[in-house]
Design a protein around this nucleic acid. Structure first.
Lengths: 235, 235
DNA sequence: TAGTGGTCTAGACCACGTG
DNA sequence: ACGTGGTCTAGACCACTAC
């Protein structure tokens, strides 16, 4: 049954073959597939190699593995999309435009109440609030409102925000371990309408992100994109 | 230097230790870290185990590995968010509501021109167009417009769309290998406003998805969510 | 061309969870 | 209890690529 003799066995080839059997319904959804040892014998390789292939399929959710129970083909394969969070400058430049940003506001202010739950900065500690306008070839591209926990990033006060944007500076200097992202739509208010040069009420795409380093909240940012913006990803 | 003697070495523990050194800037961004062999000696384990830990960090983009050049800490760690694409019924039920759907339109119709580029159904082959209304506890939740390539899923004509939604049926019966997703905001037109019982012009969150099985286009779906909807994900 | 990561092996022991 | 996947090892060879 050893079908692959020409090429040296590789775990990716085994994965592709297993994928084929799943996609072509050789193994039905919900069905238990042969054990690692059996597959290793069939493919003429070590069990470790089969394990690597199956682990990869399990990571994408296509199969479900349990000790003793074996490996089953997922019934409702939980498809996942991975979206890369770009630095704004790179996102603009990837569209072939030149990026420019203007810091229009930078002040210490208390965290607004509606953020207290989601972004628990220690009481008494104020946050740095910033508003940044991002342009692509001088066209308005993104409106950024950000609260940053100065206790988490004390060096930020002296960061050079002329050349590098706050966005980029934080990525490079304030590593985070976890975060929450929220995506939704809003209607442009007068301020946003003025910036984007669009009618009040225009539908705008918004991304909110909160990041943490372990248990320390770093920053809360709300990014409102220009009318017509589309976020894309491949599955 | 062998710090971890109490517990049997595990690749996750090594990964956490490496992560710590990166986050605490023991290894600076851009810096080349010791080779696998050195680390294996330091941790008192096999090189394979260190490899596993480093591969995991490389997958998340925290380090960049190159043969001969070694492993470097990423300068701009490209953070990635993974968002799970739920079945609509499960998404509604996860909110503690009861899901109900109504198929309001089902007809063969030619693919609209603006989709030809993104969704290249073979010329002459018509697509099945469906409109489905999804409710959460009888409140409008989602408006679904879908084109399905019948050549890819011929069995669909006889699928029982009463109990199970098209959405769910496709997930279970039409496996896909790749896809594109797009997220954006639109203003409610009169039809959407009537369904969602909201003013015309209300900002709505939209997800478009195209899925393929190898080179065969499967379905193009546009899902418009109720006002106020937020999509969430953890990083 | 030499050094580094990528992969593979054969074998072993362990951890989990089903029966 | 026992079968299955999870992990680890020591060693080997290979592939890529920087020098």
């Amino acid at each position: 049954m050893n079908l692959r003799v020409k090429e040296p066995n590789s775990w990716t080839q085994i994965r592709e073959e297993l994928l084929r059997r799943i996609n072509e319904r050789v193994w039905q959804p919900g069905e238990t597939i042969p054990g690692e040892a059996d597959l290793a014998e069939e493919f003429g390789c070590a069990r470790t190699t089969v394990n690597r292939a199956l682990r990869d399929l399990a990571e994408t959710g296509l199969v479900i593995r349990k000790r003793k129970a074996g490996t089953r083909v997922a019934v409702n394969p939980p498809h996942k999309a991975t979206l890369t969070i770009p630095i704004i400058r790179e996102e603009v430049e990837a569209r072939g435009a030149e990026h420019r940003h203007v810091l229009t506001l930078k002040e210490i202010r208390p965290l607004p109440p509606h953020l207290h739950a989601a972004f628990p900065v220690p009481p008494g500690a104020d946050a740095l609030y910033t508003e940044t306008l991002h342009y692509a070839d001088d066209r308005p591209f993104l409106y950024e409102e950000r609260y940053t926990n100065l206790e988490a990033v004390p060096e930020m006060s002296v960061a050079p925000m002329d050349k590098i944007s706050l966005n980029e500076w934080l990525v490079q200097n304030a590593p985070y371990t976890t975060g929450d992202m929220t995506f939704f739509a809003i209607s442009a208010d007068t301020a946003l309408a003025r910036f984007f040069e669009c009618p009040v009420g225009t539908a705008l795409y918004v991304v909110e992100r909160i990041t943490w380093n372990s248990d320390l909240p770093i920053t809360h940012v709300r990014m409102t994109y220009a009318p017509g913006y589309r976020m894309r990803t491949r599955i």
